[in-house]
Simulated scan of single mutants.
Amino acid sequence: MKKIHLCIPIYMPLPLLLLLFLSGCSRRKAVAPPAPVPQFSFIIDALYPTSPVANQGHTSNCWAYSMASFIETENVLRSLPDDTLQFQLLPPEYMVRQKLQAQFDLSLCSGKVKLTSGALGHTALDVFRYQGAIPIEVFTENHATCPDYIKVSRRLRLLAHTSSWLPAMKNRIRRSGQHLLDEEFGILPDTFLYQGRQYTSQTFAASLPALSQEYIELTSFCHYLYYNPCHLALRDNWEDAIFYNLPLDSLLTVMRNALLSGYTLVWDGDVSEPTFSSRGGVAWLPPGTPLDEAARLDAFFRGETTDDHMMHLVGLAHDVSGARFSSPRTLSVL
């Protein structure tokens, strides 16, 4: 039986969060003025090795960068003791390209345009499992410049709309979309040589330990039944993927236990609260702030709490008062 890792996106404004590297992914609400940053003194409970920090720039691709980091770290943490596996950097742009291709194809087939700027953790896992992976050295051979993501999405969206009223031209329109992706991202090789071995994208992904694991996506919303699967009505959940719903306290316990038991996880939540300071490197809840699930749900529906950034959590710490903090590493675009 495969081991199930409780490691994937959790939609909640996570309290007591130690920030090592941050950026905003897609701001969907007005950002409140920052609050004064308290002074903290941290004691590390767990901290796992991970690949070097990459820079997503001013894009909405935090999901791809965080999941590339997560998969890279999984490959090392899940390798056998006698393996010499090192961090093999996976290009987030490859995941973005494959996501855009999948969204474009779905739009052509369904007649409903689903070309969104963001995505979630399962999007990257689906790419990894079904489209494979390639090392960043191979990808950059045909990818010298950063794609213009806004232009690409706009042109793919226009092509998808065109196919809805010219259905007889769908095959030609799909080829036009493929050509656009090749122009912006580079032509993907059918096979490639890496460290003396010949691979396809599928065989390269199959050679990495992360592909042999199973993962689950968790969430916490009190308008869904607890301890049951649910559909999260989020724009970035364009595949209508299933999440498992837990009470907030249980979700926090699962997260802490995972980080203390040799696992990392990916968290997706709100980074635009006034007590979230990227420059100060810390996010916190003021003392005495209640974790009221009903109030949190109301704030979510009003747009005050959003899912605007994804981060890879690689550690856990506490301060002198005993309050828990989690240690993310994502992209710095300050």
Rank of each mutant, 00 (worst) to 15 (best):
L232Y: 00
R279T: 03
A317I: 14
L246H: 02
P328N: 15
P247D: 10
P290I: 12
L252D: 05
G288Q: 00
D270A: 11
A241M: 07
P229L: 09
S278R: 05
P247L: 12
T253F: 03
A258G: 13
P290W: 06
G269Q: 00
G269F: 03
W238K: 07
P247C: 11
L265K: 09
P247W: 02
T306F: 02
E304T: 11
P274W: 00
P287W: 01
D249M: 07
E273S: 05
G315E: 11
E273K: 02
A323P: 01
L248C: 10
R235A: 12
R279M: 04
A294G: 04
F243Q: 02
A241Y: 05
D236C: 14
V266H: 01
T275H: 03
S277P: 03
D249E: 07
R324M: 15
A233S: 06
T275A: 02
T306Q: 06
R324Y: 10
T264Y: 04
S261E: 09
T275K: 00
T253G: 05
P328M: 15
P247F: 07
D240I: 13
L252T: 05
P229R: 01
V271T: 02
Y224P: 03
A283I: 06
T275M: 01
S261I: 09
L260A: 06
L313F: 08
G281Y: 07
H312I: 07
T306R: 05
L285W: 13
P328G: 15
A317T: 14
M311Y: 09
T253K: 01
L316K: 02
I242Y: 00
L297I: 10
M310G: 11
G315M: 07
H318L: 08
A294N: 05
P287A: 10
F300Y: 09
F325N: 07
L297E: 12
D308S: 13
T253W: 00
D240H: 07
E239K: 14
D236I: 15
D236E: 14
A299M: 07
D319K: 12
A299Q: 10
T275G: 00
M255P: 02
P274L: 02
L285M: 13
S278C: 07
L291P: 03
Y227L: 10
W267H: 05
W267I: 04
C230K: 00
S327N: 09
G322N: 09
R302Q: 14
A299V: 12
M310Q: 15
L251E: 03
A299T: 12
R279P: 00
G262A: 14
D307A: 15
V271S: 01
D308E: 11
N237D: 11
D249K: 03
S250K: 04
F325P: 02
P247R: 03
S278A: 08
L234A: 11
L225P: 04
A317M: 10
M311A: 15
W284Y: 14
L252I: 10
R279Q: 11
D292M: 01
